[in-house]
Amino acid sequence: MSTQFAIEEELKQSINNAFRSAKVTIKRQGRINVEFRSGILPAFVSYLKEYLDFKHLVMMSCVDWLEDNEFEIVYHLWSYDHKVHIMVKVRLDREKPVMQSISKLWDQAETYEREIHEMNGVEFEGHPGMRDFILEDWEDLPPMRRDFKTREFVDKTYEWRTGREDKQDVRETIAKQYDTEVPDFKNSK
C-alpha cells in the first residue's frame, strides 16, 4: 500500500470487502472510479452514503456509448470528510434502459433522474413523479442520444430566413435590396 493514496486505498479495501463485484480503480488523489452492475446499485450507493460518508450527491450524468449499444450512468458522490470524489459507473442496455431510482436516498436525485429520462430516455423505477423537466411535449427521439440528428431536426422544425434558400449568397440579396453591387472582398496576398 502506497502512503500517497492512503485514504483512497482504505476506501477501496472497504468497498471491495462489502461488494466483491465492484471494480475499483484509483485515478489520482481524491478521485476513485467504481464500475458496478446495475442490479443492486441503490444498495451500493446507500452503503457509500451511510457507512463511508459520501453524503453529497454531486450530480448524475448519462453518457451515450452508441457503438457499444450501452448507456453509462455516472453517479458522482463527494465525501466532505475524506475529501474524495467517487464516480460510480453503471452500464445499461441501450435498447431497454431501466434503472432503479435513488430519489429515496437523495431528494435532489429526482431532478437529475427526470432530466436523464427526458434527454436520454432512461426509465427510472420507483421515481415519485416522472414529469417533463426542460422540454415540453417532446415526441421525437430523446435529444441527448447520439443518434438524434440535430441538423435534420432543425431542417424539419424551423424555416430558414428568407434570402438563404438554396445556399444563395445572402450578400446578393442585401445588395439587391439596397440596389448596389456585391463588394469584392477577396483576400489579396
Binding site: V58, M59, S61, H76, T111
Partner: peptide
Amino acid sequence: YVVSDGSLKPRRVHVRGPAYVHGVS
C-alpha cells in the same frame, strides 16, 4: 464532467451548476 473518446470532438460535457439543486429541489 468531461468525457473524451479520443476523437476531435467531446463525447460528453456535463455541467453541474449550483443552481440546479438550489433553484429546483
